[in-house]
Computed example of a mutant assay.
Amino acid sequence: MKRIVTALLLTAAVSGAHAAEPDKAVGKVLKQLEYPYEIDEDGDYKLVFDAGDDRSQLVFVRSTVEEYGSHRIREIWSPGYTSPDKQFPAAVANRLLEDSQDAKLGAWVKQDQLAMFVVKVDANANKDVLSDAIDAAMRTADAMEAELTHADEY
């Protein structure tokens, strides 16, 4: 039952102002990297990686491009924690803030009951930059999930 609830939360968290059509430029780069992926109903790229130690980790590369001034930004998301309640426990929220401070790329955000690690890169990032961003999101989120829950939900 928890996996079903988590799947519903992930769907809700990743949906919103997303492109219905996948950004083909992302698919091209992911193919160059030889990363297997699926495209979700929002047009985002969904990847599952082997995180080592019999663990896996889910990562989304969003098709939607956000803009701020002259910046065009693509987001890479990876879930790391699901709160049992609408609000995160204070100790968890503080730990996520501390981890955001230490992170070289990205930061933790709250999406409903989910803690998502989000790395933002230039929308036209080359394969090396995108690979580094995906790796940072995957490793950071998986490490936090292991620390906070001792489980492998994602």
Results as ranks from 00 to 15, higher is better:
28 K>S: 14
18 H>P: 01
27 G>I: 15
25 A>T: 09
40 D>V: 15
50 D>M: 13
35 Y>W: 15
35 Y>S: 07
61 V>E: 00
41 E>Q: 13
17 A>L: 13
23 D>H: 02
46 K>Q: 06
53 D>Y: 01
52 G>D: 00
44 D>Q: 06
57 Q>E: 04
58 L>H: 04
55 R>E: 03
55 R>T: 00
32 Q>F: 12
44 D>T: 06
53 D>I: 08
31 K>G: 10
56 S>D: 05
16 G>C: 12
50 D>F: 07
22 P>V: 04
40 D>Y: 15
16 G>W: 03
41 E>L: 12
20 A>D: 07
30 L>I: 14
16 G>R: 05
44 D>M: 07
47 L>D: 02
47 L>Y: 06
33 L>R: 10
22 P>Y: 06
33 L>A: 12
41 E>D: 09
22 P>W: 01
54 D>C: 06
59 V>T: 03
49 F>C: 11
40 D>P: 11
49 F>N: 09
26 V>I: 05
25 A>Y: 06
45 Y>W: 14
49 F>I: 09
30 L>W: 05
38 E>M: 14
58 L>K: 03
55 R>P: 00
17 A>K: 11
16 G>N: 05
50 D>S: 09
28 K>N: 13
17 A>P: 08
57 Q>R: 14
56 S>M: 08
53 D>W: 07
22 P>E: 07
50 D>K: 15
49 F>H: 11
29 V>E: 06
36 P>N: 15
48 V>L: 14
57 Q>T: 15
48 V>P: 01
51 A>H: 09
55 R>C: 01
34 E>R: 10
52 G>Y: 06
32 Q>T: 13
48 V>K: 13
40 D>N: 15
30 L>P: 04
27 G>L: 09
31 K>L: 06
56 S>F: 07
33 L>E: 12
55 R>K: 05
55 R>H: 05
62 R>Y: 04
21 E>F: 03
55 R>N: 05
41 E>V: 13
17 A>C: 10
41 E>M: 10
20 A>T: 03
28 K>P: 00
27 G>A: 12
22 P>S: 10
43 G>C: 12
18 H>Y: 09
55 R>Q: 02
53 D>R: 08
20 A>H: 10
59 V>L: 02
38 E>R: 13
21 E>P: 07
25 A>R: 04
58 L>C: 07
27 G>C: 14
42 D>G: 01
61 V>I: 10
43 G>D: 09
48 V>W: 06
49 F>Y: 10
48 V>Y: 07
46 K>L: 09
43 G>H: 11
36 P>D: 14
16 G>I: 04
50 D>H: 13
50 D>Y: 08
30 L>Q: 06
30 L>N: 04
29 V>F: 09
57 Q>Y: 00
40 D>C: 15
64 T>R: 01
43 G>T: 08
54 D>L: 03
37 Y>M: 07
25 A>I: 07
61 V>L: 03
47 L>I: 09
35 Y>F: 15
62 R>A: 02
